[in-house]
């Protein structure tokens, strides 16, 4: 477990630092392709949504649209508040309130 974690972190450090060093240190040998910078634009939304959707719709592994799944209303509440207010923290808190109330009521 510990070796696994150590390797996990070491690899993440190498990858992340390598990316950050790329142009600042080795810039004269590199050029940034335009298609890549356009593709990068969609990475955060794609990765984060790919993490959210299975957790919200299938928290136990199977798709669960029943009222017993508090993740779904909680996630929708957080997303809706963020969408309309752009206030990240308020959105997280609202999501938590809906999630907590839902679990408490059902």
């Amino acid at each position: 477990m510990n070796l696994h974690l150590l390797l996990t972190i070491a690899g993440m450090v190498v990858v992340t630092y390598g990316i950050r060093l790329s142009f600042l240190v080795f810039g004269h040998r590199l050029s940034f392709p335009a298609w890549l910078s356009r593709a990068l634009h969609y990475v955060p939304a794609a990765v984060l949504t790919a993490l959210i959707v299975p957790m919200a719709l299938a928290p136990q592994g199977a798709i669960d649209l029943s009222p017993g799944n508090a993740y779904l209303p909680g996630t929708l509440a957080a997303a809706a508040v963020a969408f309309f207010s752009r206030h990240t923290l308020a959105a997280i808190v609202s999501g938590f309130v809906v999630y907590g109330l839902w679990r408490w009521l059902l």
Binding site: Y71, A78, A82, T88, A91, G95, Y99
Partner: peptide, 19 residues
């Protein structure tokens, strides 16, 4: 339900971009 915090955090970050 702290595992929900992750979902809520990600949702709050992504949602405004969906416009």
């Amino acid at each position: 339900g702290l595992d929900f915090a992750m979902v809520a955090t990600f949702a709050a970050i992504v949602a405004p971009q969906l416009k």
